[in-house]
Design a protein around this nucleic acid. Sequence first.
RNA 1: GCCGGGGUGGCGGAACGGUAGACGCGGCGGCCUCAAAAGCCGCUGUCCGCAAGGGCGUGCGGGUUCGAAUCCCGCCCCCGGCACCA
Length: 818
Amino acid sequence: MANQERDGYQPSSIEEKWQRLWEERGTNAFTVDELRSAERPFYNLMMFPYPSAEGLHVGNIYAFTGADVHGRYQRLLGRQVFEPIGFDAFGIHSENFALKQGTHPMDLIPSNVRNFTRQLRRTGGMFDWTHTVDTTDPSYYKWTQWIFLKLFEAGLAERKEAPVNWCPSCMTVLANEQVVGGECERCGTPVEQRRIAQWFFKITKYAQRLLDNLETIDWSETTKKAQSNWIGRSQGAQLHFPILDVTGANTTGQVEVYTTRPDTVFGATYMVLSPEHPLVDTVTRPEQAAAVSEYRDQAQKKDLVARQKADRTKTGVFTGGYCRNPATGRAIPVWIADYVLMEYGTGAIMAVPGHDERDFEFAETFDLPIVRVVAGPDEDADTPLAEAYVGPGRLVNSGPFDGTDVTESVRAVTAWAADQGWGEARVQYRLHDWCISRQRYWGPPIPIVHCPKCGAVPVPEDQLPVVLPRVEDFKPDDSGVSPMARVAEWYETSCPSCGGDARRETDVSDTFLDSSWYFLRYPSTDFDDRPFDPEITKSWLPVDTYIGGNEHAVLHLMYARFITMVLKDLGYIDFEEPFTKFRAHGLIIAEGAKMSKSKGNVIVPDPIIEEYGADTFRTYLMFLGPFEEGGDYRAEGIQGPHGFLHRLWDTVVSADPDATPDADVERKVHQTIKQVTEQIPELGYNTSIAALMECLNTVRSGGRTAARAEIEPLVVMVAPFAPHMAEELWERLGHEGGIFDGANWPSFDEAKLVEDTVTLAVQVNGKLRGSIDVAKDAAEADVIAAARADENVARHLEGTTERRVIHVNGRLVNFVVQ
RNA sequence: GCCGGGGUGGCGGAACGGUAGACGCGGCGGCCUCAAAAGCCGCUGUCCGCAAGGGCGUGCGGGUUCGAAUCCCGCCCCCGGCACCA
């Protein structure tokens, strides 16, 4: 507190004053008219928080401040900046917390939201509090349900029984994205496989577009890479292998395999089906039936951890059946093994042990034939294989293709297979359809009614929202159905189509569906009768800049892009990428380590704001390190920005309004304007603040009194970081109406940047030996003469033979001698 | 294993191929003070030297260049994404 008494700068009263005035004047709020008439709209978005009971985390404040600085800068450039905030309050987080505390999420969330709102206001963000969103509000999730209906109508939502990831601890189905290394992302419990009827969104239909569009958007490289890895496009061929009957003379069907190396098909000496493959029963011969069935049971019991993470020792069993390799015409044995996954490709592979590491290992284990079909530079068709050879080379033992280079053989062999009718080129994606069903309570009910006669019937739009009722017993159980399935008075309904007795869908939808479209809602929260107003959406979207954490690089961002594409295809909006520019902020650690309660290094924002003010806190957070990389929060470090803001305050309030600016100081100011103007839009906040500090040091050097003209640009440039203080100083400088509407971002004058004299480094053979001051336009000969004259330089030149002299204007002189 | 991003003082971090370490923290010394806090001024990569000055320094080893933290080649380590994905 004592800190606030000093020099007349009192953050607490100033911050309270301006937060109040912003509110009263509607400084950051848009009316519908303003939204409709904005001429230079800038939609500045940050990832909305989940309102936890613990309150706002420094990580949140860091992210929001970085985004807010960006928004405030755009505003000082004259844009109308819409900067909304909201709450992503549905989901397992809150539900589990409520269960633990013995409270109800419907009581918990509003109080958390109130607390978050209070904390967010104190941080000085430029939020439009008249356009907030709460995903748990029926007026919001009405439209989340509407989106489901639109996908359903478009055939992009389907219900199918599918093996799903089941978390036995959370007692719910998880999306693939929520399974990390075979464990539940949330609680770390090994995930089990179950077969349940689920709703899926067909995001795989959009795989290629989601991949291609990455080229067109301004996103950080890391994020784009994470997305393309997740989509996981691979190019290869689907080949058809005929199944042979006992005699080996007739075929009884065929097995489809997917391979990225169709060129090695001559080396396919056996085939492996996934244990869950539907053709296993067809292929298996009676004498192997017992072994096969035992292996399948075993595989099914293994959870995903055991199956995917284990030591990867190959196991498997022979089915007794054979296929014909369509390239060689030979019969090859069919095995089942759990290293082949049903979820990828066709769930069956042609095994080429000579040129695939896994197949090689399997063949070694079970003594299956290994044939070389690719020879490297120093090898031929008979060179023995000690391990799978996956390098470059030419085909061998491959009939008509012998001698073909592997790079061209992929296409050649595929074409040949297509010609003969046993294969075709195929593109495969790793991306799976999005399972949106959750057997939980705390989410928007999926707006479907199951009718014994009509099947799955969508709830008519005019009956939305399907309101989630308050249910006291919302604890999930192991039954695989939602707690809502215990509430007969809710799920018992009539079919919207035939009027007969029917049952509501009792699952709720994934939280990621809530957050896949919230940015569309923000500017249109004034309307109850439409999810987003066409006119407003047209002028404000897509989002200009989106800032958020990289933990959402795959899930949230992918879903938001998908939903946006669908809405575009359905004609509701005219753009297909929601976020023109996305930047991920870094992570804040504290005292050199990740924040954790056990380490006792968790930063609690409230007391810091109490003691130093939000402006100092914001400035320090932005000063810690490059915004996109994060930084290490050290408690003492805040003294730097704290002192800086106090000195700035002192300098400004004691500035001489009539003094003419000093030429050197003015030059520094112009250099600073240039630097900050270049760095701020690139989120170079730490260096911008450093430049402002340096400039202030120059302004104050020798204890001089600043001229007003020198410091006014500084006040504007500091405004994105310390908005309250900047407002107050702006007012004290005699301006009316607020800095964010009244001030223009300062411009610099190229002519004022250049120094009259410059200091050059003088090197001898690249080693620094002295420095000289010369006039900025001095002739080269004079510069070199001056360099030569430097005492220390002269000493190093003595007794040497000069080979070359390099003079880089304004930089250095280098004597190359021998 | 594949794909990104990194490795710079005691610490956080700056550096269009051109004076490495800006800015800040911490430390040391000084001013102010009865004293402390706050503030202000100076010093602060490291080694040798009284100094002038010099040697060494950006993960390691090479290379290109008058000149490399920066470019190239080969390694090591850290962070993140994907991973029995055929």
